[in-house]
Design a protein around this nucleic acid. Sequence first.
DNA 1: ATGACGATTTACT
DNA 2: GTAAATCGTCATA
Length: 184
Amino acid sequence: MSDGTVLAGVIVETEAYLGVSDAASHAFGGRRTPRNEAMYGPPGTAYVYFTYGMHFCCNVVCANPGVPQAVLLRALEPIAGLEVMRRHRAARRRGQVPDTDLCSGPARLCQALGLDRAFNGADLLGRSALRIVRAPRGPLDDEQVGRSPRIGVDYAGEWARRPLRWFVRGSAHVSGSKRLGTAS
DNA sequence: ATGACGATTTACT
DNA sequence: GTAAATCGTCATA
């Protein structure tokens, strides 16, 4: 953060949005507007969008410039800056927030990290304030990764059923872990 | 200018 | 389980 505090977490849940052919994607049918323009940028670009009148969600652009494919960051296991995250998340809530719920959802994660439209279009691979680095613990075995259909895209017909959500099996930091964390 | 809607979260019955 | 919160964006006119 601006005061030097480091907020960090391990990505434990993601969803893929496969571009112009994907009915659940903001770029479906080649739709290109000021809002989703970042999706058409180079790989490693952040696509942060505002939704439901109150939430932000953060994606990582994955394909070449002009090809609007991205991965939605859905949950993190927080590993640094927990105090700040708790403050961010408790602000607009009644009680306290369990540590397993600090970043267990695409909008929760953005709230905990303080991500908003200022980060839209940011380069996640450089030295800027927001970045993604290789996990020190290394890659996971396939057995440790679960898959399921994506969340909240029921309007997308056949695409809604595709298993394009990935999560760390057994992680308590996955969104809706009680319902979905053990699926597939 | 208008209106419908959302890649969600939270609270409440 | 259901519903409220809350508003930018985009398609339509």
